[in-house]
């Protein structure tokens, strides 16, 4: 029983140990400012990783999240700034902040659904399909912006990424709400159980009457939406949409999922575990910066931590 509990909370223990070690090495780590900063930074990864967890639970992978983040980010900023001009009707359609956000989320959803459609209808491996989308979305971002950032989106929009609500940064509130929603979906609904069932054994899930194609479609759609929310948060925080935003975010989110204990072969894992995984990556990044570790070494350390997490995961399963 104790062994089981220890196994379940190994990522939480790792996070606590990491925090203790960094706070001993750097006196700035436990300052309120730094903690809020870390929470704000990990909010984006938490959002993306939450969607990614559902995909990985289903034994899939979504490599396109970073590019989808960038694309939805520029779509949101572009619509907020310039709207859409329909010359034939002599009208200009402007977008409110709500409209821009809604449009970005819909675009994210559509890209996710497209990924799901390609994977289910053409039986493409998720790795290949989403890798292709990674390139397509990045290219579309560059085409849309011509490589130029879209800036000055206004103080109201900036509030989403930089504001505070009841003493807590707004992005942290957003990620808490989304995590609670996805935890509810994955643990308390039939749809959530279908995801675990597909990840555990797709054939058995099919034979028990689960609509695999629709479930996959929805899960990839959710992943795209989560990436879009991440994109909105990044855009708002910078008050600017950068065409190269979100590069390598897919790796960070996969790392968070894996460190959080979700099995890459599907069927095992939790969203709360992923949140802890994202926190480990965020704390690690922050700690390495506070300790003045060279950015090149930071990447090496991050890679080693992911490797270690996967090895421990494999060993514990044996």
């Amino acid at each position: 029983m104790n062994k089981e509990l220890l196994k379940k909370s190994q990522s939480l223990i790792a996070l606590l140990l990491l925090c203790i070690v960094i706070s001993i090495l750097s006196d700035k780590f436990l300052s309120a400012n730094n903690i809020w900063n870390v929470l704000r930074q990990i909010s984006v990864n938490v959002c993306i990783s939450t969607g990614m967890t559902l995909v990985v639970l289903m034994a899939g992978i979504d490599l396109s999240v970073g590019s989808v983040l960038a694309f939805t980010s520029v779509i949101c900023a572009g619509l907020l700034k310039d709207g859409i001009t329909i010359g034939a009707l002599n009208i200009h359609v402007g977008f409110t902040i709500f409209g821009g956000i809604l449009a970005a989320i819909i675009v994210g959803l559509l890209i996710g659904l497209f990924n799901g459609l390609v994977i289910t209808k053409f039986s493409l491996p998720p790795f290949v399909a989403t890798l292709a989308m990674l390139t397509i979305a990045r290219g579309a971002t560059m085409l849309y912006t011509q490589g130029i950032p879209i800036s000055n989106l206004g103080p109201k929009f900036e509030y989403i990424g930089s504001g505070w609500l009841i003493g807590i940064p707004v992005p942290v509130w957003i990620s808490i709400l989304l995590v609670l929603l996805v935890v509810f979906i994955s643990q308390k609904t039939a749809f959530g159980r279908h995801i675990y069932a597909i990840g555990g054994n797709e054939k058995a899930a099919f034979l028990s009457g689960i609509n695999i194609q629709v479930t996959k479609l929805i899960v990839y759609g959710i992943s795209g939406m989560m990436a879009a929310v991440g994109g909105i948060m990044v855009t708002s925080r910078l008050n600017s949409a950068q065409p190269n935003a979100g590069a390598s975010y897919e790796l960070d989110s996969i790392a968070a999922v894996v460190i959080g204990g979700t099995s890459l072969s599907g069927g095992i894992g939790t969203v709360t575990g992923t949140v802890i995984g994202a926190a480990i990556i965020g704390v690690l990044n922050n700690g390495l910066v506070l300790l003045n570790v060279s950015p090149f070494w930071q990447q090496v350390v991050k890679g080693l931590v992911i490797l270690l997490a996967v090895i421990i995961d494999r060993k514990s399963k044996k």
């Binding site: 709207g83 359609v93 409209g99």
Partner: peptide, 15 residues
Amino acid sequence: VAIYNSIYIESLDDL
């Protein structure tokens, strides 16, 4: 309701 709160339309001349 979502569309009403998302967009506003104006003529190009006004713009």
